[in-house]
Structures are given as structure tokens and as C-alpha cells.
């Protein structure tokens, strides 16, 4: 047999197979040979793979990261996500405060702010009259007796009843020893229904209702009876509803603190004489508040008798 001729014929055949298009179906003829070759070579190839994996460091495909780099990037991504969420929450909180302060200013143009930076509440103390909040800040940052403590800039917490060099004591408005408050409810204001402290204001009805509030037993709420203002037709008096906002409108509180938020109407009880008893729950529980801002009239010559503007305390925003 002339093997040279056979070699030539096989070479020509392979040359044809090399350039023949796939649609001619040459691949279907070759496929069994392909499978047989793969089957034959695979055991040795696998054994050699094991050997090389043991000896050589694992190769990463191009464009991929090492495990350490990937782990580090994951951690950085997590931190960035957390920071982003914290910032988003902070931005929302600030926006809410701005909106609510703006609203208070609309209602009380004399709302001149002279306040401390947020001060930590270090706990609750008891005295003969009831319970007091201990606030970290006293005469060292010029807090006088009679200053008003608020949370989130607009929610009334209580009044400073005593101070020392480092601390002040605040009597919460829901405490039995706090005394009466007069509040006002506007028809076009509601707390957001999701339970947050955000106040929603609607356009339209501007009617209002005056309520005289006293701290209830238990130190959680204030109860009050609606009163009719002089010259107002009783039939047109606003009917209180749950969720309505109750604001401070009390002559024995500083003028600059009027229209601060006392709380929300949590319950309305009808009485036989047609009056309504409203139960008001503070939007922020004074016993659980972690920090407060203390506001007061600046009695120093530079501030003036009517109260200066600007913050006092450790940090000036």
C-alpha cells in the first residue's frame, strides 16, 4: 500500500473539512470522533489538573478580583449604604423640622429663637410634686429657671424648674405637678397617619378650638374640655377629632413659645352638656425623650429684654 498516496488523500480531505462551511454537515460526522477523543483524554487531564492545582496558585480569570479585594469592596459598599441611609434619615428629619418651624413662625411671628443645642436627658428624678427630667446643661450654659424644653424644635416637653452648675431639671407637661395648659386645635392640621411626628396642613378651613388641659393620672396624657371663645357662635365651633394637632396658646407661658405642639388628640369623649372632652397625648413621650433643646429669653444686655436670637450652649449651629 502506498502510504504516501494515502497521506496525500487524507490531507486533501482534511483541507476540505477545514474550510467547508458548517451547513454542509461535516460537523455531524466528526462529532462522534470528538466525543471519543474527549472521553479518552479527560481522565489524564483531570489528574493533571489536580496536580497543578496543588502546586500552582489558583489563577483568576482576567478582569476578576481576588477574594480579599472583593471582600474589602463589599465592606466599603455596605458602609456606604449605611451612611447613605443615615444621611437620608437626617435630611428627612431636618426637612420636617424646617417645615414645622416655618408653620410655628406663621402662627407666632414673635417666635424668636434663643435656644441651646440639643442637650442629653440623663434620666428621671422624683421630687415632692412629681417627676422631673434631668438635662445635661445648667447655669454653665446660662439656662435660667423658667426656660422651656422642646424636642425636635417644636414639640413641647416641659419647663425648667431648677438648675445647678451642670444640670437642669425639667417638669414635663404631662406630670401632675405641671399645672394647667391652654391649647388650640386648628381644623386644617393633622398628624401624619403613620404615627410619626410630622404635621400635615391642609388648605381651607381655618377654624379653631380652644381646650383647657390638665395632666391626667398616670402621667401619660392631658385631658381637657373644649371651650367656646367669646363672640363665637356655638354651632360653628370646630368638632375635635382624633389625630388633630394641639398647640400651646397659654398666657402664662412665654410669648415666644406660643404655638409649640403639645400633642395629638388621641380620644374625644362626648359629655351630656354638649362639650367635648379631649384626651391629648404628646407626640413625643416626655419620659422617653433622649435629648431636648432648651429655649429662653435672653436677659443679658446684649440680647435685650425681648430675647435675643441665636443659639447658646456647646455648639453653635
Amino acid at each position: 500500500m502506498n502510504w504516501n498516496r494515502v497521506l496525500l488523500l487524507v490531507s486533501v480531505g482534511l483541507g476540505f473539512a477545514a474550510i467547508a462551511p458548517a451547513r454542509l454537515g461535516v460537523g455531524s460526522v466528526i462529532r462522534p470522533l470528538h466525543l471519543a477523543t474527549v472521553f479518552a483524554v479527560q481522565p489524564s487531564e483531570t489528574a493533571m489538573n489536580w496536580g497543578f492545582r496543588a502546586v500552582l496558585p489558583a489563577q483568576r480569570p482576567k478582569g476578576t478580583l481576588s477574594e480579599e479585594a472583593a471582600e474589602m469592596l463589599k465592606q466599603q459598599l455596605e458602609e456606604a449604604r449605611r451612611e447613605k441611609l443615615a444621611m437620608a434619615a437626617r435630611v428627612e428629619s431636618l426637612q420636617t423640622q424646617i417645615e414645622q418651624l416655618t408653620r410655628v413662625l406663621q402662627l407666632n411671628p414673635g417666635f424668636a429663637v434663643r435656644e441651646t443645642t440639643p442637650l442629653p436627658v440623663d434620666g428621671i428624678q422624683s421630687d415632692a410634686s412629681g417627676t422631673l427630667l434631668k438635662v445635661r446643661g445648667g447655669s454653665n450654659i446660662s439656662i435660667p429657671v423658667g426656660a422651656i424644653a422642646v424636642a425636635e424644635r417644636v414639640h413641647l416637653i416641659g419647663k425648667v424648674v431648677s438648675t445647678d452648675a451642670l444640670n437642669s431639671r425639667v417638669r414635663p407637661i404631662v406630670d401632675g405637678g405641671a399645672g394647667e395648659l391652654t391649647g388650640v386645635i386648628f381644623a386644617n392640621e393633622r398628624f401624619q397617619s403613620d404615627g410619626t411626628t410630622k404635621v400635615l396642613q391642609t388648605v381651607g378651613d381655618q377654624s379653631r378650638l380652644i381646650v383647657k388641659l390638665k395632666p391626667a393620672e398616670g402621667g401619660l396624657t392631658l385631658n381637657g374640655i373644649s371651650s367656646i371663645e367669646r363672640g363665637v357662635d356655638p354651632s360653628t365651633v370646630l368638632a375635635p377629632e382624633e389625630g388633630m394637632v394641639v398647640r400651646l396658646m397659654s398666657d402664662d407661658w412665654p410669648r415666644s413659645e406660643q404655638m409649640l405642639i403639645i400633642g395629638r388628640v388621641s380620644r374625644v369623649i362626648d359629655t351630656p352638656n354638649g362639650r367635648k372632652v379631649v384626651v391629648v397625648t404628646p407626640a413625643i413621650d416626655p419620659r422617653r425623650v433622649s435629648e431636648v433643646t432648651v429655649r429662653f429669653v435672653d436677659s443679658s444686655p446684649a440680647g435685650g429684654a425681648s430675647g435675643g436670637n441665636g443659639p447658646v450652649g456647646r455648639v453653635a449651629p
Binding site: 490531507s11 482534511l14 483541507g15 473539512a17 477545514a18 474550510i19 460537523g27 466528526i30 470522533l33 470528538h34
Partner: peptide, 11 residues
């Protein structure tokens, strides 16, 4: 389509 091309390496 995965295709086996014979000829180039053989030649």
C-alpha cells in the same frame, strides 16, 4: 453552535 473544526491543526 459549538462546532468541531478538523483540519487546521492536522495540516
Amino acid at each position: 453552535v459549538p462546532t468541531v473544526v478538523v483540519g487546521p491543526h492536522a495540516l
